[in-house]
Design a protein around this nucleic acid. Structure first.
Length: 533
RNA sequence: GGUCCAUUCGUCUAGUGGUUAGGACGUCAGGUUUUCAUCCUGGUAACAGGGGUUCGAUUCCCCUAUGGACUACCA
């Protein structure tokens, strides 16, 4: 039936194919760019996580690659309801688009590790068969005890080449005993058998060449007793299966890179290229940016509102534009080498390159974050800002026409950086002052003031038409004719209209609120302040 | 404690074997403005320290210091 010659031919083609494949895989530059963002759904993403996702995304788009979202939920005990949705919503808000993922699907589905459980088992077995991994039966209590004992001697217990032969595992137990324990359903883990005293060299795109001796490494658990893989196994298997070309992740993973490199070697796979991103640090003091810093220091650490913790603030709810948020994050640890600071997402994609990412951690600066938002705010049209401002006003019970509101925006926009600032800078357009700034009062209010205001009232009542331009002309003419002091009159006027020494051009305000409201505010001020003298 | 990583103005950073070490945020001063703000102009301020290598090091090497990460059947 089978022609031996045909078999031979096939063998040759097969080995040729394998050879070609080998060439293909060793020449990374030929490989299709595929990156992944792989968060754990253990809570809300913080801005460091968003930045990691962003750099992955920029890198993918820049190189016509594919962006994958993989959910790493192998720790069932830390799973948090709603976190996965939060992550996806946050990325969406930031404009980071996913090509393959739990929601989008793709050729390597499923993209949730808990649904890939069976896959990992096979690969753990592969390592077991090869002798690069072994079963360990030590209980968590026993290990805990060893650790605390070592700690009391200020040492660290290391389950590795120097200690593994004293432990309870398939290297020490004998195959029959191991079989028996396995058959009886005893709990076990699979550990990687780290070689002894071998220097392993590897390269990080950002940090360059690194050498680590395997003797300093321990026999990491790859497969847990609950039937789930640990991060290390699942990560390597999935990155390989999903054909990830570049692993771009946080610096906290750098210490486990040697292990990962060893795993690729054990499996006989070509490892992807690695880039470990520096961490985001607290604005002041020591340490990395943490979820608690936000509320303590008055800035958000989350992209979106997270309703389940004590630290709830999100950039979206605090009024940041996603473009500004992304721009700010992109420049935190990366720079284009030019003096340009403002980038749209498309410009970021165009300019991004992974080797321009810095090596050291970046302190997060809330002031600069605000500055970015202000820049984007100032670039929006009056109409757009008015549209964003309107809901806020309606909530407060005001319903100006779109044109009227656009006019207000025109007048106050330059003093605002956020939509919410618009209200703080324009409240006097809608509400008469309730009180008067004591500082200004002290400086501007004296015995002559009531008479001056009465006189001013008559002038204002006679302005026709009641436009900003005519009002200014008439009032100034009156001031000049009567020999009043310009500053005195106008500042007093402003105080009664606004309640303080702030705001846009005075006659723009009176023109907008109208003659009736202007006179009302003058009368109000007069009756309230006259008693002061 | 061990392993690994990092170190340029207060902060984000550019940069080079020979530069007046550049920009931005912040801050300060002046100008514009009837107010506040914007805006404009200007100022302030840095190569962690010590050894090498070199004619010359902020730049290359080593040490120290400092900071950071990791050190789980968490990711």
């Amino acid at each position: 039936m089978i022609n031996p010659d045909f078999c031979r031919v096939e063998e040759v083609t097969l080995s040729l194919f394998i050879f070609a494949r080998h060439i293909f895989h060793t020449q990374m530059s030929d490989r299709k760019i595929r990156v992944r963002f792989a968060p754990s759904p253990t809570g809300p993403l913080h801005i460091g996580g968003v930045r990691t996702a962003l750099y992955n995304y920029l890198f993918a788009r820049r190189n016509n690659g594919v962006m994958i979202l993989r959910i790493e939920d192998t720790d069932q005990t830390r799973y948090v309801e709603g976190a996965e949705e939060y992550i996806m919503e946050a990325l969406e808000w930031a404009g980071i688009k996913i090509d393959e993922g739990v929601r989008e699907g793709g050729p390597h589905a499923p993209y949730r590790q808990s649904e890939r459980k069976e896959i990992y088992r096979q690969y753990a077995d592969l390592l077991l068969d090869k002798g690069d991994a072994y079963y360990a039966f030590d209980t968590q209590e026993e290990l805990e005890k060893l650790r605390t004992e070592h700690e009391s001697r200020s040492e660290t217990f290391n389950y590795g080449s120097t200690t593994r032969m004293n432990m309870c595992n398939s290297l020490t137990l004998g195959s029959e005993e191991v079989r028996k324990r396995l058959d009886s359903g005893e709990h076990y883990v699979v550990r990687y058998r780290m070689p002894e005293n071998e220097d392993i060299h590897f390269t990080d795109i950002i940090r360059g060449d690194i050498v680590v001796n395997t003797s300093t490494l321990d026999d990491k658990v790859l497969y847990k007793s609950d039937g789930m893989p640990t991060y290390h196994l699942a990560n390597i298997v999935d990155d390989h299966l999903m054909e990830i070309s570049h692993v771009i992740r946080g610096e906290e993973w750098l210490p486990s890179l040697p292990l990962h490199v060893m795993l690729y070697r054990s499996f006989g796979w070509t490892a992807p290229l690695f880039a470990h991103l520096p961490l985001l640090l607290k604005p002041t003091g020591k340490g990395k940016l943490s979820k608690r810093d936000g509320d303590k220091m008055g800035f958000p650490v989350f992209p979106l509102y997270w309703p389940y913790g004590e630290t709830a603030h999100g950039y979206r709810e605090d009024g940041y534009f996603p473009e500004a948020f992304v721009n700010m994050l992109a420049l935190l640890g990366w720079n284009p080498g030019t003096e340009q600071e403002l980038f749209s997402m498309d410009e970021l994609i165009e300019a991004f390159s992974i080797d321009r990412v810095g090596k050291s951690g970046s302190r997060f600066d809330p002031e600069k974050a605000k500055w970015f938002n202000t820049q984007y705010f100032h670039r929006k049209s009056d109409k757009e800002l008015a549209g964003l401002f309107m809901p806020l006003l309606k909530e407060k019970g005001f319903t100006p026409s779109e044109e009227a509101l656009a006019k207000v925006v025109t007048l106050v926009r330059e003093r605002a950086g956020f939509v919410a600032d618009l209200w703080k800078e324009s409240d006097f357009f809608f509400v008469a002052p309730e009180s008067y700034d004591p500082e200004v009062l002290k400086k501007r209010w004296n015995e002559g003031s009531p008479a001056l205001i009465k006189e001013m009232r008559e002038v204002v009542a006679g302005i026709e038409p009641f436009t900003a331009q005519d009002s200014e002309r008439v009032v100034k003419e009156w001031i000049a004719a009567r020999g009043h002091n310009m500053g005195t009159v106008l500042n007093l006027f402003r105080l009664l209209i606004v309640g303080a020494s702030r705001g846009p051009h005075l006659f723009d305000i009176t023109g907008w609120i109208g003659r009736g409201e202007t006179l009302r505010r003058l009368d109000n001020g007069l009756s309230r302040l006259s008693q002061r003298i």
